[in-house]
């Protein structure tokens, strides 16, 4: 990935890289829009973005390539993942279309749009290209070249984007921040409230824990064998991720009872026989 290579010509190595990684990038993009779980989509998108970073590097945009990896893939995509976590990481979306004709229109428009873009690019006479060699070496390197442009020609835009970033940060805080309008209840007040309402006076019961595996998502069973959802933590309950084992447990219980019955019956028979 020498300077010359990115400057005046493309090597067959770059061509190979393009075809392999390009295919992967398209597959990643398709996966992004087709995966049912948002977290999978995010991961596919991150992969695509890393491939794009490689393409930036191949195109002589060394600074942007690194920024793409650090800022985009590293920061922005992680932000996405955080939000996905907040919203529910395992919740799968239904891909069934609810708006009539939406999918067909989307596909038709997409096809038409893509064909038009490709046709437009194909129409443009782009047989020759200048290469970045001269531009990158003018100031001693790609980063220096960019810096020279950013702090001279584009300095106003740069400052304005700075202002934009600050505004965005403040905006995000304003949007997500919830002002507390009253004093938080103390532990004592909470306890008194529980007594007043007359429910769950003791601490919440523990989930059904089995020796075989970690089972925080399995409800503990009440004496009659029915599962007590209260034993599962609130977050899992809200996401509907309680693993239902009640029938299994009930079956086990039934089998246990039957076995003890059999045992007791046999003992009785033996007693009678001895008499």
């Amino acid at each position: 990935m020498s300077v010359n290579l990115a400057a005046y010509a493309t090597s067959s190595g770059e061509a190979f890289q393009f075809w392999v990684l390009g295919t992967v990038a398209v597959v990643g993009a398709l996966c992004t829009i087709l995966m049912r779980r948002a977290v999978h989509s995010a991961l596919c998108l991150a992969g695509t973005m890393i491939i794009l970073a490689v393409f930036y590097l191949a195109n002589g945009a060394y600074f942007l390539g690194i920024v793409q990896i650090v800022v985009y893939t590293g920061a922005i995509m992680m932000l996405f993942l955080f939000v996905v976590m907040l919203v529910g990481v395992t919740a799968a979306d239904s891909l069934k279309e609810t708006i009539k004709g939406q999918r067909w229109w989307a596909v038709a428009c997409g096809l038409g749009f893509g064909i038009l873009l490709v046709a437009g690019i194909g129409n443009a006479s782009l047989k020759e290209f200048a290469g970045l060699g001269a531009a990158n070496s003018a100031h001693g390197g790609n980063v220096e070249g960019l810096a020279a442009l950013i702090f001279t020609k584009y300095v106003f835009a740069f400052e304005i984007t700075g202002a934009l970033l600050i505004t965005a940060a403040v905006g995000a805080m304003v949007l997500t921040h919830r002002e507390r309008t009253e004093r938080a209840a103390t532990q004592r007040e909470l306890a008194e409230q529980r007594v007043r309402e007359g429910k769950h006076l003791p601490p919440l019961p523990a989930p059904g824990v089995y020796a075989r595996h970690n089972a925080v998502d399995i409800a503990g069973l009440l004496p009659d064998g029915t599962p007590a959802e209260l034993t599962v933590m609130q977050t899992l309950r809200k996401r509907g991720q309680i693993r239902d084992v009640s029938t299994e447990a009930l079956a086990d219980l039934k089998a246990l009872e039957q076995r003890s019955e059999e045992r007791l019956g046999r003992d009785r028979d033996e007693e009678e026989a001895t008499r």
């Binding site: 708006i99 038409g112 038009l116």
Partner: peptide, 23 residues
């Protein structure tokens, strides 16, 4: 119909038409 996605489709289609016209 109030669905943002429907509006997006029409925007997208409109863009396609604009590109076609330009070409």
């Amino acid at each position: 119909n109030g669905y943002a996605r429907s509006y997006a489709v029409s925007m997208f289609g409109g863009t396609a038409v604009l590109i076609a016209a330009t070409l």
